[in-house]
Design a protein around this nucleic acid. Structure first.
Length: 398
DNA sequence: CCTCCACAGGAATTTGCGGGGT
DNA sequence: ACCCCGCAAATTCCTGTGGAGG
């Protein structure tokens, strides 16, 4: 710690403006790197909304950290502003379908995001309403407040059913909306997402398709440089940005990961009272990034899922083999034991199987189904994707 | 090759919760 | 204040099946 009278009033020797390195940070246009074409295409697709007309529905594909959400947020913000010049009210609802994966949750979330209770006198309770009731309120909110509604469905492939897409895409034509109209922007990590949609939804949802390619090392360098004024002058050693860019490019061109590593490297340097950020800090930050991503995911898990994962990790650790496969029944019995120690009632076997397959869906674990046979044998084998130690640490801290 | 059974996983049912309607 | 409703989570019920043991 710097020798000052307070822990808080010292000038930060490393960071000048850390906000630039936060994932949620929405950069200025000239700081969005290598996406000019995509931004233009997206803007063209939805520009009708600035005149109060129905925009095209858009589907955006691309791996994580390729700037899909960022560009969408930027363009929609911009759109709302330009529409205002024409006295057109555009409302944007951003929904993370990973968090709100059921139809009800997603509609509720859209309605809640668009609603200004003071103006509409409509409330959007967290729960307790039927799905159709949430829809009804959503239509009322749109008609009362807006000329155009834009619904951004991020991680749209995580939706458990596409009824909401049906409802939203037909809202205007079916007369649910009278004073307003509606556009959908779907964002998906999976390029094949469109394939398992029914024909009607598919054609209306993907009037325009955009694909975001992964960033290459050059682009990642440019992105990191554009955010480097988050740091004080001269604290970043020359090799830091190229090194991080190379790491991130190797791991699927994920810009978010690159930025996270840069931030962690800075924090690492700070904690070690170093006045510069060096390659060593980058290496440390890289490990930290992996651990953190995992902890974050695990901390959001329901208690029982966490406990199950913990049980699986403990057993994986006991095996001498690397990457061992643990039968479900073994996981379950340890889990029961752990519940007993914690003094809570264990879930039943059936439920546990569902939770485990949810964990697989989140790719925290992998499952392999092996033959059934007479007598012994659990027939689904579970293994961790990440190091058992990392998982255990994450389970304990959460 | 055939049998047969323990588990996977689909479906129906119950429980808990947080709201509306009256 | 009361009852009723819809949803999500959990539980109970049930059927289908892969391959070890015969």
């Amino acid at each position: 710690m710097p020798d000052s009278s307070s822990f808080f009033d010292a000038d930060d020797p490393i960071f000048a403006n850390k906000d630039l390195l936060r994932v949620q940070h929405l950069p200025e246009k000239d700081r969005i790197i290598g996406r000019d074409e995509e931004l233009t295409q997206l803007a063209n697709a939805i520009k009708d909304a600035t005149h109060g007309q129905t925009p095209n529905n858009v589907l955006i594909y691309g791996k994580t950290g390729t700037g899909k959400s960022l560009c969408t947020k930027y363009i929609t913000n911009d759109l709302v502003e330009s529409a205002k010049q024409n006295d057109i009210e555009v409302g944007v609802a951003y929904v993370d379908c990973f968090q709100d994966s059921t139809e009800t949750q997603a509609v509720r979330s859209v309605a809640d995001a668009l609603n200004l209770p003071a103006e509409t006198n409509i409330s959007v309770p967290m729960s307790g309403l039927s799905t159709s009731n949430y829809y009804r309120r959503l239509w009322d909110i749109l008609d009362a407040q807006y000329d155009v509604g834009l619904v951004i469905l991020d991680e749209i492939d995580k939706l458990d059913n596409d009824n909401i897409l049906m409802q939203l895409s037909r809202a205007t034509e079916s007369g649910k909306l009278t004073e307003s109209t509606l556009g959908i922007i779907g964002i998906s990590n999976k390029i094949r997402y469109k394939e398992n949609l029914n024909e009607r939804v598919r054609s209306s949802l993907s009037e325009r398709d955009l694909v975001f390619a992964p960033y290459d090392a050059d682009q990642l360098r440019a992105i990191l440089r554009s955010r480097s004024d988050a740091f004080q002058d001269g604290v970043l050693n020359d090799e830091v940005i190229p090194k991080i860019a190379a790491l991130a490019a190797r791991e699927h061109g994920d810009a978010r990961k690159a930025i996270d590593i840069l931030r962690y490297a800075g924090e690492s340097a700070y904690e070690r009272d170093s006045h510069t950020v060096s390659e060593d800090h980058v290496n440390e930050a890289h490990e930290r990034e992996e651990q953190n991503r995992l902890s974050e995911l695990i901390s959001k898990l329901p208690t029982h899922s966490k406990r199950l994962l913990h049980a699986l990790a403990l057993q994986a650790q006991q095996h001498d083999k690397n990457d061992p496969e643990i039968p479900t029944e073994d996981v379950y019995s340890l889990y029961e034991l752990m519940c007993e120690q914690e003094g809570s009632d264990p879930l039943k076997n059936r439920r546990v199987r569902d939770l485990l397959s949810e964990l697989e869906f989140l790719s925290v674990i992998r499952q392999r189904h092996k033959g059934r046979g007479r007598g012994r044998g659990a027939h689904t084998l579970n293994r961790l994707v990440d190091e058992s130690e990392l998982v255990i640490k994450a389970c304990k801290s959460a």
